Simulated scan of single mutants.
Amino acid sequence: MSLRPLSADEALTRLAEFGAVLDVRSPGEFALDRVPGALNWPVLDDAERAHVGTIYKQIGAFEARKIGAALVARNIARHIERDAQNWPKDFAPLVYCWRGGNRSGAMAHVLAQIGFRVHLVQGGYKALRAAVVRQLDALAGQFQFEVICGPTGSGKSRLLQTLQRHGAQVLDLEALAAHRGSVLGALPGENQPSQKQFETRIWSALRGCAPERPVFVECESKKIGKLQIPAALLDRMHASPCLRLEVDLPIRVQILLEDYAALTRDPQELLKRLDTLTELRGKQTIARWRELVAAGDFPTLVQELLAQHYDPSYSGSMARNYQGFARSSAWPVAGSAQQAFDAVARQLAPQAA
């Protein structure tokens, strides 16, 4: 039998070595956070876990263990029959559960008895989570960030994507958070991850970057939608050099109309989001914007949102929070926005290589 225990730090360092990473917690636990690339092989699903917990509280541990053991045995058998039949003898899975106890131990034991080279995370997900938090704080201090600044609609996210295509290292926090960062920025049909999963995604993205090269990141406030940027990372961003996009208003309007096309196709959802600004902008202003939506005059709506909501606080907020903003270099974006972003990326990407 080949069964090797690993610390959480060693497991995270060696993730690429394993044939599969098996998270044997329930689907509900898995949905909240998991190791990048992990497969969910629950030995108890959410209902079964709740049922065993109820038996434990109402009757006792012995009865709960009997019922749980039967469920676990059936579920492990199903996973092996469905997913492990083509594994070679030298296949090396990594297995973890909540605390590295009964659930992962049962799965690891059976797989090891078959002859696979099983690795079991000591302390389970709780230890992995603690290691990710610890490592993320350390990673934030290892990189030189280049912060892309610019008012709403200047195409910061587009430049990030273009830089990535040109080979630069990029940390796209809004993509990782599944949110564009503004009050209107929730992505239609997509829920944000949990705070823990957001941090795991950031950790995973930074692990893939080389510390000797700069990492481009968009300026952000403390929160992206409902999610908080880790303090160590935000502090590092605030202290980093900035580059500033300068974009004429018509181009900004066009960029926003393209980026928020899903909202202009769904006026009711747009109205719902505009209503959240009532306390800030007043009923009269919101009524005016609702009239523009009803008339389908989205270019005017965007111009007024920029002038009355987004732009007034931009420069002051940047100057307060980003030390490099006052000394930031200006990068004009004119004509065809995408061609301009390509031109900027060609100049910046060689500096990152």
Rank of each mutant, 00 (worst) to 15 (best):
D172S: 03
A262C: 12
S194A: 10
R180Y: 09
W203V: 01
P241Q: 03
T278D: 00
K272W: 13
L173V: 07
A186D: 13
P211I: 13
D259R: 10
L176I: 02
V253P: 01
R236P: 03
S204Q: 08
L234F: 14
E279G: 11
Q197M: 14
E190Q: 15
T264F: 11
K222D: 08
W203S: 00
G150I: 01
L271N: 13
L256G: 06
R252T: 03
A175D: 03
A239N: 13
V170H: 07
T276L: 10
I202C: 07
E146R: 15
P193D: 12
R207E: 13
I255M: 11
L271E: 08
P267H: 05
S194M: 02
Q268D: 14
L227V: 14
S240G: 09
L256Q: 04
A239E: 14
A261M: 07
L159D: 12
Q144V: 10
E199L: 11
I202W: 05
Q164T: 15
R236D: 04
T264R: 14
P214T: 04
Q195C: 11
G150L: 07
A261Y: 13
L233S: 11
C219I: 13
L163Y: 10
A232P: 04
A168K: 10
L206A: 05
L249E: 14
L171S: 06
E258C: 12
R201L: 04
R207I: 13
A262P: 13
A210E: 13
L234P: 09
I255E: 08
V215A: 15
R252D: 09
N191V: 04
G208V: 14
S157Q: 07
A140C: 01
E212T: 12
L173K: 02
L163I: 10
Q192P: 15
K272Y: 14
L206G: 03
G141F: 10
R273L: 14
E246N: 07
L243C: 12
T264Q: 12
V253G: 04
Q161H: 08
E212L: 10
G225M: 09
K222I: 01
L257Y: 05
K223E: 06
A177R: 04
V170P: 07
F198H: 02
L176Q: 06
G167T: 04
K223D: 03
A210V: 01
G189Q: 08
G155W: 03
G155E: 15
T200M: 01
P188D: 08
L234A: 11
Y260S: 15
